[in-house]
């Protein structure tokens, strides 16, 4: 341990790291993640409430997806801790479901829609368990929830982008988790899929589950989410959408990259 630890202060003047609230679905404390010598996420504290829909918002390259992967523990952290429902993330994996970016997999992989959804059941099966009819029914039920039951036996490469995203969501549903982490679930999907996904996410929230999504469309943040975390390598703002998602916060997060006209449109649409 270094004898002198500088006080790291965020934009809102809070000292890091803050205490971990017991009722938070996901708490990240002093997390730094770097690729090589350049931090992609620096000393970030983030708290995502349970029973709510949260968005992670920020410009390209701001560390949104990196923060999500660090929260999952799938990429190593240089420093910091992640707690899921008050437990270290490594001990709470069965309570987390991850919906990765659609572009991150090879869609020509020899597997069917149903096979992909059943992947969500693997941890419950263990090494020796067999995928029985009950499991199959469960997977089909999850497919039905996202409106994809008719596609169960298709090869995944034959699906449209929106359908692929729905299949990933169905797989997460099959995990029957308490915390759902989604990486840009609405990127490049059609309007019908966006509607279907948001309906499923809202039904999860109604069941008391927590949803955290990396989100790129600023226009829908207020409509879809309750809570927002704004990041540009460091934490810029976080809190309930109606008081946090402001012009000032957007300006500090996006810097000069957001056109003034765009900003005023967002502020107008959100003011009501």
């Amino acid at each position: 341990m270094a004898p002198f630890e500088p006080e790291i202060v965020t934009t809102d003047g809070q000292l890091l790291p803050a205490a971990v609230p017991a009722d938070a679905a996901l708490s990240i404390r002093s997390a730094t993640v770097s690729y090589g010598d350049k931090p992609a996420v620096f000393s970030v504290d983030a708290t995502f409430p349970s029973g709510a829909m949260s968005a992670i918002v920020g410009p390209n390259g701001a560390g949104k997806s990196t923060l999500l992967k660090a929260a999952l523990g799938v990429i190593p952290r240089v420093s910091g801790d992640v707690f899921v429902f008050g437990e270290p993330v490594e001990k709470a994996r069965d309570r987390i479901a991850y919906v990765p970016q659609r572009a991150s997999v090879d869609w020509d992989f020899p597997t069917t829609v149903l096979d992909v959804v059943q992947m969500g059941l693997y941890p419950r099966l263990g090494l020796l368990g067999r995928l029985g009819g009950a499991m199959r029914k469960e997977a089909l039920f999850c497919l039905d929830r996202v409106g994809m039951a008719d596609f169960a036996n298709r090869q995944i490469g034959q699906l449209s982008g929106g359908q692929q995203q729905r299949v990933f969501l169905a797989r997460a549903l099959a995990q029957d988790a308490d915390l759902y982490l989604l990486d840009e679930p609405f990127a490049g999907v059609d309007a019908a899929t966006e509607r279907a996904i948001i309906d499923v996410l809202h039904s999860l929230k109604a069941d008391g589950k927590a949803v955290v999504a990396v989100h790129h469309d600023l226009a829908t943040v207020r409509e879809y989410f309750d809570h927002v975390f704004m990041i540009n390598v460091r934490r810029m703002a976080e809190g309930p959408v109606d008081i946090t998602f402001t012009t000032a916060a957007l300006q500090s997060t996006y810097g000069g990259r957001l056109a003034a006209t765009h900003l005023s449109e967002l502020a107008l649409s959100g003011a009501g």
């Binding site: 990765p100 597997t111 090494l127 020796l128």
Partner: peptide, 21 residues
């Protein structure tokens, strides 16, 4: 026979496999 599922998962998407533990 024993590791077919984990090996398939990792081949399809390593990050997702890691997220499952």
């Amino acid at each position: 026979w024993l590791l077919k599922r984990p090996m398939t998962l990792v081949s399809f998407h390593a990050d997702y496999a890691a997220s499952l533990g």
